[in-house]
Amino acid sequence: MTTKTRTNTVASAASTRPGQGFLSKLPVKIAVVVIVALWSLPTVGLLITSFRPQEAIATTGWWTVLTNPFAETWTLINYQNVLTANGMFDAFVNSLIVTIPATVIPITIAAFAAYAFAWIRFPGRTLLFAIVVGLLVIPLQMTLVPLLRVYNNLGLTGTFLGIWLAHTAFGLPLAIYLLYNYIAQLPKDLFESAYIDGASHFTAFTKLVLPLAVPAIAAFAIFQFLWVWNDLLVALVFLGTDSEVAVVTARLNELVGTKGQDWHVLTAGAFITMIFPLTVFLALQRYFVRGLLAGSVKG
């Protein structure tokens, strides 16, 4: 936009937006504060409860703490229990093991393909690319029944290898689509002068494309990370609930089934599933938004 920027300085952020008459300032402020409070309330309730002793949770609501926080006995015992006795620590390790390769592996495969689709002419290019983008519309559900049968035959069900491959493949259409859009928009001269200097496609890819595509790669990586970490469906279908391999979402779902009334267990457990994505979110908010926008087309 060529217009005044309204960010950065406090004064401008606060007052230069035209159309102030619509709603005068104070009611807007109050409305925003109320909305934010309502939005945060469920998470805050969970967080507070997870640090309260079991008996206190069962007798009084978590909000009673707010009036006198120092009278309350705070405790970490719920976390200790859920991490050890209820297997959340193992599940957390499993989630890490599933998520990291499933986020990293698709990037290379997709980047090579995206470069070829964007900068090399070859027979079948348009058709193949159209098919790849078309695959974005396929809901995961379409693949589960046949894949499960193949997985059972190959002995891949319940293995990490199986779920990495599945998440890698499911992430590819989006990864290729995103990276293609980015790589195809790089200036043409850049490649022409590289080719004239004798660069092969391989060199052009590693020396030019990869460094320049970092923002798009970051956007995809964050989206894929969140998607895989928070996924329950693929994890239940291909990995299952065996404690050797179960991820945090599957484990938490089990706890809801077996300890549905034990809020000291459930609140701490839920917070453990959330802590890693929340940290990533707060640290990388900017890329996160871009990734979400970009990922809005994932089937």
Binding site: V36, W39, P42, T43, N230, L292
Partner: peptide, 28 residues
């Protein structure tokens, strides 16, 4: 309003939470 970013961040936070996590939060 002022402090726009803080308000937006707080409302945006649930996006980072899994649906299973959200289900537990709301079950409570």
């Amino acid at each position: 309003i002022k402090h726009e970013t803080i308000a937006k961040t707080l409302i945006f936070i649930p996006m980072a939470i899994s649906m299973v996590g959200a289900a537990v939060i709301w079950r409570f």
